[in-house]
């Protein structure tokens, strides 16, 4: 698929999207959304390869909520000068669900910028792997990369494997990453309980708050919120 020069496009993908290749021509804007909300007995796999030309702007959001075993591969190449990507991934696992998410972002153009963020909740015996990598090549002078991976673990049977990798081949750049894995904080629980909120309810509130920041400025926020609410009520 080609996103023509100077155009703006919105794209919503379903879990049967398969393998897709997209080229964003100079100064095109793409807002891409993908929802994996299929039945929890499905296996599915989506692979996206996106190339950005000069000044292209990509804002993408991946919601990984359904499916039994889901795989998401996103490969973004920022080849054009000043191209930029903001990529957000949200995952929410319960029961026996498993997610494998692989995100490779390669910056080769000058003054490019990549902001890659993932946030997820794992409950029940669910498990997830987020293998993120930002590669800033020698030609990508004055580029910026940020990689954030945060997980809230709600059950002692959930498993998380996070690999936030950076490969930096030159010095005139800025690259950071941060990762955290936490459970519901005892203090937060205590605070909620002292306000008369039961533990179960408090966990739901905290879970909701943990994810909310990730999608609050997206246009489809209402739908996303509803899907997350459904998952939260299953806790």
């Amino acid at each position: 698929m080609i996103i023509p020069r100077h155009s703006t496009k919105e794209l919503i993908l379903k879990h049967d999207a398969g393998v897709m290749e997209i080229r964003q021509e100079p100064f095109s804007k793409l807002r891409l959304m993908y929802f994996q909300n299929g039945s929890t007995s499905n296996e599915n796999s989506v692979e996206l390869r996106i190339i950005l030309d000069e000044g292209a702007d990509l804002n993408c959001f991946f919601g990984m909520l359904g499916g039994m075993a889901s795989r998401l591969v996103v490969e973004t190449r920022l080849e054009g000068i000043g191209s930029r990507v903001r990529q957000r991934t949200l995952y929410f696992g319960n029961g026996e669900q498993s997610f494998i998410m692989i995100s490779n972002t390669v910056l080769s153009g000058r003054e490019t910028s990549a902001e890659i963020e993932s946030k997820g909740i794992l409950a029940g015996s669910s498990q997830a792997r987020f293998d993120g990598n930002i590669h800033i090549q020698q030609t990508a002078k004055q580029s910026k990369g940020r990689l954030d991976e945060h997980t809230l673990l709600l059950s002692p049977h959930a498993k998380m494997n996070a690999i936030p990798g950076l490969k930096i081949d030159t010095n005139d750049v800025k690259a950071t990453h941060a990762a955290s894995m936490t459970r519901v904080d005892d203090e937060q629980l205590f605070y909620a309980e002292s306000r008369g909120i039961e533990e179960h309810e408090a966990v739901r509130l905290i879970a909701e708050g943990f994810l909310a920041g990730l999608y609050k400025d997206m246009p489809f926020m209402e739908n996303m919120h509803q899907l997350i609410q459904e998952k939260i009520w299953q806790l």
């Binding site: 673990l153 498993k159 950076l166 490969k167 081949d169 990453h177 990762a179 936490t182 459970r183």
Partner: peptide
């Protein structure tokens, strides 16, 4: 501009009562 730095942290967590933080900057 021609030297290289890679960061490959692998975090495997099989317990939820934990507190883990990781930061890196290049």
């Amino acid at each position: 501009d021609h030297s290289v730095s890679d960061t490959v942290p692998d975090m495997k967590i099989a317990e939820n009562d934990v507190s883990i933080g990781h930061e890196a900057s290049v």
